[in-house]
Amino acid sequence: MLEGKKTATKPPVRKAPAALGETVKDNEVSRRSFFSWLSLGWIGFVASTGGFFTMMLRFFFPNVLFEPVQTFRAGYPDDYIIGEVDTKWKDKYGVWIIRNREGIYALSTVCTHLGCTPNWLASARKFKCPCHGSGFKSTGINFEGPAPRPLERYRIVLADDGEIIVDKTQKYQQEKGQWSDPEAFLRV
């Protein structure tokens, strides 16, 4: 109807009114279908843009990491004294190996608060984190400061030749009850 009004005000340069009426009808149909095509186009545009940005986000996660080896051999069980915390692997691998009466376990040297490296204070028999003062017992249990949970333990097994193998890719968390896993604790 609007089209009709417009043509009325315009000088009659165009085709006859009968034909015009037909084209108006055609126009409305095609406009409707045009809009659906348009919305389809927009959906496509948004989806592909979204896909592109997802891929860009994925770009930040490399597939191959160039990081040091995570598994190492840590000598024989007899190298470790019962009741002592061995700090010799701390600098190289970030692991404390501790032997108690029942066996040996490997503690991560990463504080569960914000990832600093605690120090073993032999006189106070605790791990003390210098960043925010978290304290852990030699078992790894947190007892003071802001650390929310105990230190993690690594997988520790014996190789065929009787040497200890520590595998840092496998972690065991106490609060999830994983310390009872046979590979979290090496009985000797």
């Binding site: 600098d91 600093c116 210098p130 960043c131 925010h132 802001p146």
Partner: peptide, 27 residues
């Protein structure tokens, strides 16, 4: 040296307010 934390280890000074909150809140 990734295995030796200085004592104390501090964030840049403008974030020390946040680090102070870390004593009272979870990260």
């Amino acid at each position: 040296n990734p295995t030796e934390s200085p004592n104390p280890a501090k964030a840049p000074w403008y974030f020390l307010g946040l680090q102070e909150m870390l004593v009272y809140f979870d990260p």
